[in-house]
């Protein structure tokens, strides 16, 4: 039974964070702040370090240099954070049972679980598939179930790692609509994407990563209207960052 922490995880601050894995620097000199407002979108080409940054912010990866703080604390169990991985893994049970499991793991009382399961499945439009084995769902349905499972933790911060990659436009729109809805509810969304259009549609703030470094970060409006860094300009112009 986990006890809900009353302190907020926000803001999440990275100061001069470096992450080195097997001798390779994957993130270098990352300083940024995720605060409680509109979604922050992490953009950058494949391999630029988006996944690594999200995992570190979730508290799943130790940093090699610098430090990360959650609401000012250096150690914080992920009771009010949730993540939807780039390749979500469905537990071997029904869609509803996947959510029920997340609720139990989050310490939700048994009696409160069923109504929450229905509510979450409805939110992501999977009510009719509640009893389907989760691994039999389509890619888009699995993404939505994974989103519902993350929301079951009643997070203050939600990390989404390319939740719409490899989805068709309709499925992408379904996910983006849910993201907007949960953001409107006051949940901080930090989302990685390599789709510039998606970043434009959702972002309050933008962080552009390239080779493990921040090329540019700031309010989305300014970023898209007048990027400062040369690499940001060429990225926006649709050139390949290599």
């Amino acid at each position: 039974m986990s006890v809900r922490s009353l302190e907020s995880d926000l803001p999440i601050c990275f100061s001069e964070v470096g992450i080195v894995t097997s001798g390779v620097a994957i993130l270098d000199d990352i300083s940024l702040t995720f605060s409680a407002d509109a979604p922050t979108l992490l953009i950058g080409p494949n391999g630029s370090g988006k996944t690594t940054l999200l995992r570190a912010a979730m508290g799943l990866l130790p940093v090699s240099r610098g430090r990360i703080t959650w609401g000012g604390r250096e150690v914080s169990p992920p009771t009010r954070r949730a993540i939807m991985f780039q390749h979500p893994v469905m537990l071997r049970r029904s869609a509803a049972a996947n959510i029920r499991y997340a609720l139990a793991a989050a310490g939700v009382e048994r009696a409160e679980r069923e109504p929450r399961v229905v509510e979450l499945l409805t939110l992501v439009g999977l009510e009719p598939l509640a009893h389907r084995p989760a691994r039999r769902l389509s890619g888009g349905e699995q993404q939505r179930l994974s989103l519902a499972r993350a929301l079951a933790r009643d997070p203050a911060v939600l990390f989404l790692d390319e939740p719409t990659a490899s989805l068709d436009p309709a499925a992408t729109k379904a996910i983006e609509d849910i993201v907007r809805a949960i953001s409107a509810r006051g949940i901080k969304v930090v989302m990685a994407t390599h789709d510039l259009g998606e970043a434009k549609r959702l972002a309050g703030d933008i962080v552009l990563l390239h080779r493990g470094r921040i090329i540019e970060s700031g309010p989305a409006e300014r970023f898209f209207a007048a990027p400062a860094a040369d690499d940001a300009k060429s990225f926006l112009a649709g050139e390949l960052l290599i």
Partner: peptide, 9 residues
């Protein structure tokens, strides 16, 4: 399962 279970604390 490791990532998912760890993330679910």
């Amino acid at each position: 399962y490791r990532d998912e279970l760890t993330a679910m604390n």
